[in-house]
Design a protein around this nucleic acid. Structure first.
Lengths: 328, 328
DNA sequence: GTGAAAGCGCTAACAT
DNA sequence: ATGTTAGCGCTTTCAC
């Protein structure tokens, strides 16, 4: 009827609860006779005993669960989750999925976790940083937007955007628009900032296309933009997902990529390579970001007193056929 | 230094631990003076008290966490996870991600969960079903492959494949190949079975393309297939993701979709609509699957003695331009 | 209206 | 080589 407990096993094997723990946890530092071990294993088997994770967590003080604070589960997050899951599972940890966008403050109802990994949470992290630090929960933030007061693995998208813009200019693009969520209201998001400063630095105007943060929005957004302002020579997109929407919108208009409009994305999701015009994109070193992020979190969980852990990785511009070749 | 406990709050507010519980859990069925309530809230606030999820779980017997057994985090899983996360969070539950393919038996180390949702786990579910049932853990399986002995939300991909095949035949396709992981070794996977029986029923040969389960594999696989056997009139793919790989492979060969080769996918991921030739696909009613799956699991967690809960949903063939129009 | 005590299933010292 | 004791932080029952 009820799930068997450790004591049920102990009773059946005629030993104490303690012995059961030692044996089933495979402790080799304590000596217990083969006979006893065997009896215990047999009893556990017979009862179908499974240790109670919760009780163990309460007793030891750690759950071996980390929370992943993610937003909408885009292809980018799927990638991040893939790598993070591998890291975590490989080290005996599990991942709990939170939705940063849904709850007012994920801190209020933080699950039974030993640590938190926040991915790409610009505004959010900023607002709640104090609380995060105050609760002394091991916390690492991964992504383009990072804050000095937590452990972080940053990505220098600024550099990535610069490379992309330079490449567009080098291939003869004059009007370069930026497509992102919210258009020119995109605030201090690193990519938008870099785009803006690059343009202004070159004495060029900035032009924003509002994607509403989705593929479908990007598709519509680019059509409206072109209808209103004519076609730019190139469009830099906030991410690959939105870039596919922009791509589709351009095709809807009968515009050729890259001959009429060059297109650049960001992230490096697999899908971007499979378009009819494989997408030139700013590839984030996602695997490395995750590996390092895990390493940081894991070290912090082991030793909360560790000095700050920081890294900033460089993205890589992958040139594909959605942009033109540099003239030789 | 240490995280404050309920007793710390009690001490500070000069009440008992019990009172703190009642107040902070917002119990309205017990009468406590406003003054006491206020003192307790103030004390909790001052200490930065957060209830300990683990201790509560141990005391109440449930964790409000459910495990999602998923395989590789493909775009399809991202969709499933999106909907499932919404359902779970909306009901005060969290989701723990497991990797079915990695661990020998996820049962061995089932986390601190109240229930399990398994998505698309054909072979696996089959092998471990006994154990699942034996441990009396609320369990619902979602997907094309389902087993009578657990709660499930099935999808009649058999019907979906039939519709797709009929449509291909109606648009003049004779040779229709099936692209999937492992090629003709795909065993009893429902789509493969339906394809096979449809072909054989029509007195036609079956032809398999091995995708190795990935986009890249599909791309290469289709090229090798065409090199060896010439081009089929149509290719039905195990899922949309692999279909994009096949699409790319066909473009590599300079073959036109759908004029030379019609293409059909399965799942209904967003990306499939954004190809240059939007993909005709068997759309799974993912949102409904997840909503119903959650409803089943949640009912089962509330009452383990409930009679079996079953449903089989129908997918919908979405006709887009990767297949030809039916002649009028 | 509030408190005291028992217990959830396990681990970690300290015995023997 | 094995058992005993005391918690982990909370909920729940019963007493005042």
């Amino acid at each position: 009827m009820k799930r068997p407990t450790r004591n049920d096993v102990a009773r059946l094997a005629e030993v104490s609860g303690w012995t059961v723990s030692q044996v089933l946890n495979g402790r080799s530092d304590v000596s217990i006779t083969e006979a006893t071990r065997a009896r215990i294993h047999a009893a556990a088997e017979e009862l179908g005993y499974r240790p109670n994770h919760t009780a163990r967590a309460l007793a030891t003080g750690n759950t071996h669960i980390v929370s992943l604070w993610a937003g909408r589960l885009s292809p980018f997050y799927a990638l991040v989750l893939t790598h993070l899951r591998r890291e975590a599972h490989g080290h005996g940890y599990r991942i709990l999925i939170s939705d940063i966008e849904e709850s007012a403050s994920p801190l209020a109802s933080l699950g039974p976790v030993d640590g938190v990994i926040a991915v790409e949470h610009a505004e959010w992290a900023h607002n709640y940083l104090d609380q995060v630090n105050h609760m002394r929960m091991p916390f690492v933030s991964i992504g383009a937007y990072y804050l000095a007061d937590t452990d972080y693995v940053g990505v220098d998208l600024n550099g990535g955007v610069r490379d992309a813009m330079d490449h567009l200019v080098a291939t003869g693009c004059r009007r370069i628009a930026y497509a992102c969520t919210g258009g020119d209201a995109s605030g201090d998001e690193p990519r938008a900032v870099s785009y803006r400063s690059h343009r202004l630095g070159a004495g060029q105007p900035v032009e924003f296309i509002d994607t509403c943060g989705s593929r479908a929005g990007a598709r519509v957004g680019v059509r409206e933009f072109v209808a209103a302002h004519g076609r730019p020579d190139a469009i830099l997109c906030h991410n690959d997902e939105q870039a596919t929407g922009v791509y589709r919108g351009l095709r809807d208009l009968g515009l050729n990529v890259p001959d009429e409009v060059s297109l650049v994305g960001c992230d490096g999701i697999e899908e971007a390579e499979y378009l009819d015009r494989p997408l030139t994109t700013i590839v984030q070193p996602i695997e490395e970001m995750c590996a390092l992020g895990w390493a940081y979190l894991s070290a912090r969980m082991r030793n909360p007193a560790l000095p700050p852990q920081h890294a900033v990785l460089r993205p890589r511009l992958s040139l594909r056929s959605s942009t033109r070749d540099v003239a030789v």
